[in-house]
């Protein structure tokens, strides 16, 4: 069962004294268990910094992060993480790359072969299991990276602009896959993006982050029905949410 994530007066500063760069915060936020929260903001606002702090891969300068009431003080191993540049290694096949997550955790992939196959099938990669990453398109590589991030059934999924380098059509397909995967298991998802439409389409809550030093301007609950396919984008509710967020960024001079 996924745990609630709480940020308390969380801030990150790089460097010291007059050279200090205020990257993020201070900010308070509660991410309920099983929710899909997008961190939406312009480039350099500290979205990825916040994600790395939630993952326990970056220490906060101030404040704290609590997961299920316990303070995060080091890398969290109960998470699945994905970046804009995928973490597939070129010397392994797609299947081997998914298994790498398990091997690094000291588990035998043979004991989880069924789960690996099921995941690959769910993203239409079963026929490419024995291929190496360079034989796949960018979209297929990201799908394989999804499987790698999910194979150990994490309670929390942290996604740092995983669709950032993909074309519009491929993004749409992977958004659908991501939504299906989330609805099936309901892990807590924290999704970094700078696409307003993507955030509104996928999220249960959109956290709007201001330009640097990033602060959480507001957390908007998106009460559109699930699943959200392409048609949802033409609904007035969807457009209202998009316009509201656009207004916030316009006030900050971002767009």
């Amino acid at each position: 069962m996924a745990a609630t994530i709480e940020l308390r007066s969380l801030a990150k500063t790089y460097g010291f004294g007059p050279q200090a760069v205020y990257a993020f915060g201070p900010a308070d936020l509660t991410i309920p268990s099983g929710s899909f929260v997008s961190l939406l903001g312009p480039s350099g606002c500290g979205k990825s910094t916040l994600l790395l702090m939630i993952a326990g891969l970056l220490a906060p300068s101030r404040g704290e992060i609590l997961v299920g009431g316990k303070q995060v003080s080091g890398p969290r191993t109960d998470i699945g993480i994905m970046f804009q540049d995928n973490t597939l290694v070129p010397w392994r096949t797609v299947e081997g790359n998914v298994a790498l997550q398990l091997e690094l955790r000291g588990q035998k992939p043979s004991a989880h072969a069924g789960r690996i196959n099921e995941l690959l099938r769910s993203v239409q990669l079963e026929d490419f299991a024995k291929r190496r990453p360079h034989e796949l398109s960018g979209g297929m590589q990201q799908r394989a990276a999804f499987c790698q991030a999910l194979v150990h059934e994490p309670d929390t999924l942290l996604l740092d602009e995983p669709l950032g380098k993909l074309d519009a059509m491929t993004r749409e397909g992977i958004r659908a896959d991501l939504q299906t995967l989330w609805m099936k298991r309901k892990p807590t998802v924290v999704f970094v993006t700078h696409s307003i439409e993507e955030a509104v389409q996928l999220s249960s809550t959109v956290c709007v982050i201001t330009p640097r030093p990033g602060r959480i301007e507001c957390a908007i609950d998106i009460d559109l029905p699930w699943p959200r396919d392409l048609d949802v984008k033409s609904t007035p509710e969807f457009t209202d949410h998009v316009h509201r967020i656009q207004e916030i960024f316009r006030d900050y001079g971002v767009i």
Partner: peptide
């Protein structure tokens, strides 16, 4: 990215070395 990925799995220095760093 790979460094962070390895850390998020909790893999030790040697396991990370053999599985990722060396190749």
């Amino acid at each position: 990215e790979l460094t962070r990925f390895c850390r998020s799995t909790g893999a030790g220095v040697w396991r990370t070395f053999w599985k990722v760093r060396l190749p």
